[in-house]
Simulated scan of single mutants.
Amino acid sequence: MLTFRADAERVGIGVMQRPATMKVFSLVVLVTGLTLFCTGCRAGSDAGAQERSRRSFYESNPVLTDRAVVAWSTASPSKVGLDPKKLEAGAKQLAAHPRARAFLVVRSGSLAWERYFHGAGPHESRNVHSASKSLLGALVGIAIKEDELTGVDHLVAKPFGDLLPTAPDRRRTLTVEHLLTMTTGLSWREDVTEYRIERRSNWVRAILHLRSVHPPGRKFHYSTGATHVLSAVLTRSTGEATHVYARKRLLEPLGVTVDRWGCHDPQGYDSGGCNVYLTPRELARFGQLFAQGGKWEGRQLVPAKWIEESWRARQKVDRRRSYGYLWWLFREGGHQVALAWGYGGQFVFVIPDLDLVAVVTTDTKGGFSGPKLDPIAFARDFLVKAVVAK
């Protein structure tokens, strides 16, 4: 049985990314640009929303309309070894939630299940929130391969030494790996600290000057501030805005067009941890890219070795979950599950040894309300158990 959780988890990601218009700092469970990527951008963006994105960490999460639907080869569930009754049960549970919008399952590279709820459809593009952190992780892997970053040991001080406290402060030892694994040691309270940072004239400097409570690398502590700094490091190192680098090196070759990449800071650095708008089919394509080792249509977009490293447990979060390089990790039914996880119930599940990818999305316009979906229970009851033939 799928669990909708009404209790709040206290593990860092249990904080809610509220829209910019809301400044209430209560805790809930976390479950779901500067330039628009394309010419002829999508319906639903407006000058007011763009202005909010220029001064706030978070947006009001409008629903955008994508003019094109990403193509997928399709197959019936039974054709690819899936039990349609299990998938139907999962869809029924999701449909009971007023905010649920999509449930897609891909097996062996074919779209075998696609359901939309409460009037939603494949043309709708929504903020995927922190699921975009996993996309940022892919860009880091590409930049390392291209020698634009020296490696995960690349010092934040290399591009931003002028913004860090002077030596011998331990914040000067921060590396890309600390940002990837949420182990910066900096004092950060998700959904609280952001609203202080956004009032500062230089967000990267303000984040790097937060109090150091642990040596870097010692302790997992979830922080969207860490990924904002990582986006800025990527931009300084590659010479291109994060959204431009993503479009050229990853998304265009993948056949994906981001409808909006909002939340850029006063210096113009793109968000690295939220406010990327994608359709469910586009999210599924990103998951499938990782499922097949980073190769798409014969081209190696993301190094296969980087995917292996990203999915290696590096920090124990609690008894069920670990964290890799901007991916959540857990095991269910003897299978490793890699999860891109965004506020409100934006999920990209990748189960490599079952050759299975699944996407769940919800609507967070104006904020998310209602019980929270437990992704581990969902993976157990409606994904792993749906596989009847390997």
Rank of each mutant, 00 (worst) to 15 (best):
V105A: 00
S76N: 06
S237Q: 02
Y325D: 09
T166C: 05
S132A: 15
V388A: 13
H228E: 03
A226M: 02
V350C: 11
D46Y: 00
L87R: 11
M22W: 05
E297H: 14
T166P: 04
C274A: 14
A206Q: 11
G44S: 14
T224Q: 01
A75Y: 04
K305T: 15
E114M: 02
G151Y: 14
V80Q: 08
I207M: 07
V360F: 05
T35L: 13
T65V: 13
Q17Y: 12
L234E: 01
R281W: 09
S132L: 13
G44Y: 08
P168A: 09
L250R: 00
L136E: 04
W296D: 11
L289K: 03
R281P: 03
L283M: 14
R55W: 14
A112P: 01
D318M: 08
S73V: 09
F220N: 07
G12Y: 03
E59P: 00
F57K: 01
Y58F: 15
S45P: 14
V258N: 09
A47N: 08
L354H: 02
S201W: 11
L234N: 03
L174P: 04
T279H: 07
A167V: 06
A206F: 06
G239D: 02
N202A: 08
V106K: 01
G33R: 07
P77H: 05
F57R: 06
K365F: 08
P215W: 08
G344F: 04
L230C: 05
L136I: 07
T235Y: 00
A89R: 03
P84I: 02
Q50I: 15
A102K: 04
G12V: 04
F368V: 06
L278H: 05
F330V: 06
H228C: 04
F37S: 13
E59A: 14
S134F: 10
V229Y: 02
V69S: 11
R196S: 11
V357S: 05
T175S: 10
L30R: 05
H243G: 04
T361L: 04
R247H: 02
R107G: 08
S132R: 11
C41D: 09
G239R: 00
T166D: 13
S125C: 09
G294C: 06
T3P: 01
Y325T: 01
R101W: 06
T166K: 15
A89V: 02
H221L: 14
T181H: 10
L373W: 03
Y269D: 12
A43S: 11
K86D: 12
K365W: 00
G217N: 05
L36P: 06
K219A: 13
R199I: 05
D259F: 07
T279I: 10
P371N: 06
V105F: 05
Q17C: 01
T21D: 08
R312V: 03
G342I: 04
P352S: 08
G342N: 15
G151E: 12
S110C: 12
H221S: 14
C41R: 10
V348K: 00
V15E: 02
A379Q: 01
P159E: 15
A167R: 14
Y277K: 02
G293P: 07
I307F: 05
R170P: 14
L329W: 10
W188H: 01
S271K: 10
F117S: 09
V29L: 09
L283P: 03
R171F: 12
F349I: 09
G333N: 08
P19G: 04
R247T: 00
V276W: 15
P216M: 09
H228F: 07
T39D: 13
L87G: 10
M182I: 06
G217I: 12
T65C: 04
V70K: 10
L301M: 10
W311F: 14
